[in-house]
Design a protein around this nucleic acid. Sequence first.
DNA 1: TACGGCGCTGAAAGCCTTTTCGGCTGGTTT
DNA 2: AAACCAGCCGAAAAGGCTTTCAGCGCCGTA
Lengths: 343, 343
Amino acid sequence: MSTGPEGSANRVPTLTDVAKLAGVSVATASKAINGRDEVRAATRKRVLEAAELLSFAPNALARGLLRGRTGTVGLLTSDLEGRFSIPILMGAEDAFGAGQVSVFLCDARGDAIRERYHVRALLSRRVDGLIVVGSRTDARPPLAGSIPVPVVYAYAPSANPDDISITVDNVGGGRLAVEHLLSCGRRNIAHITGEVGFQAARDRADGAEAALADAGLSMLGGKPYYGSWDETWGRAAARIVLEQHPGVDAVFCGSDQIARGVLETLRDLGRDVPGGISVIGFDNWEAVAAHSRPRLTSIDMNLERLGAAAGRHLFAAIDGDAPPTSEQFPGRVVMRDSTAPVH
Amino acid sequence: MSTGPEGSANRVPTLTDVAKLAGVSVATASKAINGRDEVRAATRKRVLEAAELLSFAPNALARGLLRGRTGTVGLLTSDLEGRFSIPILMGAEDAFGAGQVSVFLCDARGDAIRERYHVRALLSRRVDGLIVVGSRTDARPPLAGSIPVPVVYAYAPSANPDDISITVDNVGGGRLAVEHLLSCGRRNIAHITGEVGFQAARDRADGAEAALADAGLSMLGGKPYYGSWDETWGRAAARIVLEQHPGVDAVFCGSDQIARGVLETLRDLGRDVPGGISVIGFDNWEAVAAHSRPRLTSIDMNLERLGAAAGRHLFAAIDGDAPPTSEQFPGRVVMRDSTAPVH
DNA sequence: TACGGCGCTGAAAGCCTTTTCGGCTGGTTT
DNA sequence: AAACCAGCCGAAAAGGCTTTCAGCGCCGTA
């Protein structure tokens, strides 16, 4: 145990100790420490020195009890392993960071029972608000029971449109990807993506189709190639697409992993990327996109900014500021080497 | 804001409310709810029903204030993005999970100032203990200042041997990898790994060398090929190794990403894996290892178990149980297709 | 019948801080 | 010189809970 000097009354110092040492009352000590102006400069200095000497840290529990505000927030996620929770979590932490807010992290593992349990515990700890992060973009049932604090849903929206949900604009993302390919001069575009059961897959496909329609085009094969989110599917699907549509000159992939698989097949077949065929991924997962051959252009959904927005919205709701509404975040194209700008 | 029925005295119910509704004193209500035996069964029932009706949740702040135990723990990590913090975090949450502990998550971003700031805040919230998770296995300076609660260091050990550190046995992991290759009948083994500045790289290399020495062998080239942790280096290094040691029949890689690069080069060159050359990675990063061609055998360091152990050790320290000591976790081989069992 | 003892309940103190408000001091105004 | 004011400071209450201890009614026993 890395406790301090064991002999010296091993107890966390309280305001009373500080006051005693400084020779003032606790009330004065409190005011001095909290920077209130009803205290003489000299007195404040004495108190501050005493506090420093004892390395006093005010008891946030007592403070929270009194003020009815704890300065804590619960972050309820469904899959920590996923790549989506973490950036959001970081963004949220940033949004709070500078201030006085600490974050309770709970992983419900996608289990409703466990989720309820965690919510109970968090409410018991009197968090000022809750952020609920999903692992898929499909709408999720809102938190069960009536929650006495503001709740913001991030990434996965709440099924209740009255709730505040901060989400990613997957339709826009799909559109962005296709528009980028079009701007590279491509016309024969196929879309290989993940499981059709995912809203994200369907939304991205919708965006892609819309962008193509705007250009008077349509997807090769008339619809997306749905499969799974991994490289293995990407490799297989690429073969299928090449066979069915030898004239394909661009592939929009629903994930970076799929794109990676596509790139591998193209390489196996000696196809020139991006000369003959352009490939664009989705998610901008650095570890995957930055080391493929060629390096993969991808759509980044700015998850960290999304997390930060969730944090800000929660704040606003807590403070009862402006009626915070839902928000949808656009993505951006991160150019690497698998797509070539128009010559 | 998803608050409950706004009209009904919109205030979180307190024990007093419950007591009033049940027609008993707060003292009795407290005892009834906490399952103490100084209360008649009928009375307890009344209280419990009242609590249920109001959906009363005891105020953990008040309780913590009184008992001097908050049931909270601070988890201080240095890089959330990294793949190492998360499993540890989940393991720790599991270790606490069943019980009454909530976890404050703080990301210091590898910055000492920010770390100090977070520690201050956590102590102010009167956490019962701290887990410090590093992003590399290099020893880190212990937390600054005297910390009045137990601290457990996970993944990255504290430089102070008196502290409790739960770490991964990288030397053992390197040994494991080589022993596996030897058991596959390989004798000409090269080691391609990451930056020499990482203790993890050096440790794994040491383990590998020791295992080879035990078998009367040594590494091809006499020492590891140090570089960086990514695929690009893996691809380049594989070419170098093949050129310098045409007889190489196995490569132990310091990371799955390096291994992935090695596999790609071998594939480009038409070499047979695992027939002609075996490849083994390190970290067992599912996303990378499970979709390479062939699928990659790797060393898994059981980070989740490590996290759980950190949680348990922290508990023990908090409860003042057995003097908790440091611990080192072994890894295990996860067989896939890039190494073949001996025929 | 009187009394000891048992089982249950409630009043009150305490945990640590913030905030209100009354009181004290010393200087200024009439 | 009396009244007043500003500036500081301290006593006390509040916030929700647990725990101790005294008290009450009731049963069994002498």
